[in-house]
């Protein structure tokens, strides 16, 4: 039981990160029907940006107030990652809108290869590790054989995720921007006719997706303390799995999917074998897509002939 509780905490932490990345996939897919293949690499890039800012702050102000530093880094990483995703959408995806249906996917795969190798070239191929931070933890249940702990990192990650998700949920549901987004999702042409700037709405969607991916990137760095240029691919695919599992196009679905994938992965590693944890995630992806393509909260796709 104690082991299970501990794994539950670990799984929720990991799942929060997947959920944050999954939102980027789900929003972009919802609005332009494209799998943004480069999203995992955007996440990786944001972790690098966060790493550099952490080091800059540490060298300028010392490593005093970790919480303040974390917030500053979070804001900066969100801003610069959004700028990247905005530029990428502008250069690589916008010219292909309304084109042949494979073209944006190929362009996104090209962008993914580019980003991965760009980071490798400018930051070097080795693993980059930060000084450990927020290392203390709270013991929840003390027993003779096993004690369940929750570390400060995990608290920070879960709380930050929850707060930001609430904020974004509010934006999508209550603001005129969110309304515009939902309108574009339903019918882009009609939305344009009603005076919505579709291009701008799509740009903002990419910016929001990247901002959440940046949060995930910072949290990933805090949790593991190490990042390398090829760390984008596998979390990217898992987050996509999460988006599909939750029902692609659905925001709460992406979060639920992310938490489920995180839990499944952690439980699988704890009770079966750690070697095959990625295989488990990929199998779930295949099974979900084949047997329930609309996911948990998604709408079934209706094809018009």
């Amino acid at each position: 039981m104690e082991v299970f509780l501990q794994q539950l905490i670990n799984g929720l932490t990991l799942g929060s990160i997947y959920g944050l990345i999954a939102i980027g996939y789900t929003m972009v897919f919802g609005i332009i029907g494209m799998v943004n293949f480069a999203h995992g690499d955007i996440f990786m890039l944001s972790a690098f940006i966060a790493l550099i800012f952490f080091m800059l702050i540490a060298s300028w102000f010392g490593a005093g107030l970790i919480v303040v530093a974390l917030i500053v880094v979070l804001v900066l990483a969100m801003f610069f990652t959004s700028l990247w995703n905005w530029a990428i959408e502008r250069v690589a995806y916008r010219p292909l809108r309304g084109s042949f249906r494979l073209a944006p996917l190929i362009s996104a795969i090209g962008m993914s290869i580019f980003l991965m190798n760009f980071v490798q070239v400018v930051q070097g191929p080795r693993n980059k590790s930060t000084a450990p931070m927020l290392n203390k933890s709270i013991t929840l249940i003390e027993s003779a054989t096993y004690s369940v702990q929750i570390s400060y990192k995990q608290i920070v990650i879960i709380v930050t995720t929850a707060v930001l998700l609430a904020a974004f949920w509010w934006i999508v549901q209550k603001t005129s921007l969110g309304r515009a987004q939902r309108a574009c999702e339903q019918d882009r042409k009609m939305a344009a006719l009603l005076g919505i700037d579709v291009d701008r709405t799509i740009s903002i969607t990419f910016i929001m997706g990247a901002a959440l991916a940046a949060v995930a990137g910072v949290m990933y760095l805090v949790l593991y303390g190490v990042v390398s240029f090829h760390d984008g691919f596998v979390p990217g695919v898992k987050a996509f799995t999460a988006a599909v599992l939750g029902g692609i196009g659905s925001l709460p679905g992406a979060v639920i999917g992310g938490l489920l994938i995180g839990l499944i992965e952690v439980m699988w590693s704890a009770y079966f074998t750690i070697d095959y944890k990625d295989v488990a995630a990929f199998c779930i992806l295949a099974i979900v897509l084949v047997f329930m393509p609309s996911g948990i909260l998604g709408r079934p796709e209706v094809e018009k002939v």
Partner: peptide, 28 residues
Amino acid sequence: FPVLRLRGDYLAIVTLAFGEIIRLVLIN
């Protein structure tokens, strides 16, 4: 066989998953 019903991007992602599964099995 299992992916016959899927189309477009979904098919792409499932085949990607199969490719990765085979590679991970070869590794492990």
